[in-house]
Design a protein around this nucleic acid. Structure first.
Length: 464
RNA sequence: GGCGCCUUGGCGGAGUGGCUACGCAGCGGCCUGCAAAGCCGUUUACACCAGUUCGAUUCUGGUAGGCGCCUCCA
């Protein structure tokens, strides 16, 4: 078991993941008012893979990704679609599950819904009202920001510095412009509401995450994750709500950087989005995953056709390696040990086994996926130059850690028709009838097969 | 205006006080009947200005530019 370190947004310091307990990770999921885009997929991929890595190192990890299914934007989008908000949210939730399923990374351990957490939400708000950290006003309930001393500690800002930009002169139910809503009174245009001590209404944003995290992971849990655009106000408010109520919250925070389109954050409100489903359709799941791990999770990541094409090419290079070096499932080599050539005195530093260790070291160091992938590609290059026993097995194990193990899969043989054509082409080549051979190659291409000749004979590679 | 992050070769993107990141693309070559795959080579990469240092892309200060948040947002 490695010592796994992450950089904690709250302290700004590297923090060691405690191996002595279950590592609870709560990552903010989507608000389902539209289908998710590539940017939304980043935290899903990062935290899914991080949990996977922790488990592979022997940690016990529990990943929770919520779905916020009641929200102003959902009411608005549902109304625009002429659909009841509950049906609309259910439809978008299903689309989210479908889209993220296609990433092939499995599901989080729990995916709570805000609308199924209402009782807990009301309970937390009641606690806050009880203790004076919140107050009811016209059916709404607001959090009294200045009553919580730690407010601003995550985003490193002081309440005095905050320019709320509230519309001056407009009547507000708030005592203080800094206060934020915990509960909103039912409005005419909204088609869902729940009973509460403050009348019919529904939860405001932020509060649901405080409650879902605690319900799934307990009052004090290891890591809270999400996009860097959530640091303020969302995560700051989560801390305030929970801690003001005397409930310890996350001990460390991990924030992923934004996916940027034309040097600007990809965001639904800016309209510069690229949907995850479309990316999956166009480039395939491996390329999408490879793209999302091509930069360190904390940094912004440039998005564009060129970047996706690069990911496609990377994935193809890895796939080609396994085509040329199929894994013998009955082989005796284990990635953890040195290869036979190493045992004969080769450099231990560059053995597949030690490369795998270096790969894992990179992931243990604040989940540095680009550094890890560099190690994988070094191994590919070396093993392409000359046979390296154990390289395919070690590479497959590396790729499994980042959700790309499918690249090692045997693609299966070509169909009978293609086989027939390939044999015919070989006959033509044997007779030096290259015009005919090329003609057959074109026909195979039309059927979706690329021919690759080699000393061992021709190989058909699917191009569909 | 406040807080934070960033500026690396054509592009993406790591990293380090002195040693080839890695990938993609281009170009040249090897291999091939031709290709594909693979291999080899490839244009002084570290925004600018000072400082510290034997030595800085890597540390310190400043300048310029960019991004994020401060309002819904992964």
């Amino acid at each position: 078991m490695r010592e796994v370190r992450i950089r904690d947004t709250l302290s700004g310091e590297p923090r060691v993941v405690d191996p002595s307990e279950e590592v609870g990770i709560y990552a903010c999921g989507p608000t389902v008012y539209s289908r998710i885009h590539i940017g939304n997929a980043r935290p899903f991929v990062v935290f899914s893979l991080f949990a996977r890595f922790l488990r592979s190192e022997g940690y016990r990890a529990r990943l929770v990704v919520n779905v916020t299914d009641v929200n102003d934007k959902i009411y608005a989008a549902a109304a625009a679609a002429g659909e009841p908000s509950t049906e609309f949210a259910a439809r978008m939730t299903a689309a989210y599950l479908e889209d993220t399923d296609r990433l092939g990374l499995g599901r989080p351990d729990a995916e709570p819904l805000a609308t199924e957490t209402i009782a807990g939400i009301v309970g937390l708000i009641a606690d806050l009202v009880e203790s004076g950290h919140a107050y009811e006003s016209g059916g709404d309930v607001y959090f009294r920001v200045r009553s919580f001393e730690g407010y601003g500690k995550l985003s490193n800002r002081r309440p005095e510095d905050m320019d709320q930009g509230e519309e001056a002169g407009l009547a507000s139910l708030k005592e203080d412009a800094l206060d934020f809503a915990l509960w909103k009174a039912h409005k005419e245009a909204e088609d869902t509401s729940w009973d509460s001590p403050w009348g019919r209404g529904r939860p405001a944003w932020h509060i649901e995450c405080s409650v879902m995290a605690e319900q799934e992971l307990g009052a004090s849990f290891a890591i809270h994750g999400g996009g860097s655009d959530l640091v303020f106000p969302h995560h700051e408010n989560e801390i305030a709500q929970s801690e003001a109520a005397g409930r310890p919250f996350a001990r460390a925070w991990m924030h992923n950087g934004m996916v940027e389109s034309a040097a600007a954050k990809m965001s639904k409100s800016d309209g510069n989005i690229f949907q995850l489903s479309e990316a999956l359709d166009r480039y395939g799941r491996e390329a999408v995953v490879a793209y999302l791990i091509s930069g360190h999770y904390r940094q912004p990541l440039a998005f564009g056709p060129a970047q996706m094409q690069q990911a496609v090419a990377q994935v193809e290079r890895l796939r080609n390696f396994f085509r040329e070096h199929p894994i013998d499932e009955l082989g005796g080599w284990e990635p953890g040990e040195d290869s036979p050539s190493q045992q004969r005195g080769g450099s231990v530093e560059s053995s597949p086994g030690s490369r795998l260790e270096v790969f894992r070291d990179a992931l243990a160091d604040d989940f540095n996926t680009p550094r890890a992938m560099a190690v994988a590609f070094e191994l590919v290059g070396e093993a392409n130059r000359s046979e390296v026993p154990g390289a395919p097995e070690a590479l497959r194990e590396m790729l499994e850690l980042v959700g790309l193990e499918s690249l090692a899969l045997d693609e299966g043989g070509a169909d009978a028709e293609a086989q027939e054509l390939m044999i015919e082409r070989e006959r033509a080549r044997g007779e030096k009838d290259f015009a005919r051979a090329d003609e057959i190659r074109d026909r195979l291409a039309g059927l979706g097969w690329e021919v690759r000749d080699s000393a061992e004979g021709p190989r058909l590679v699917s191009r569909t």
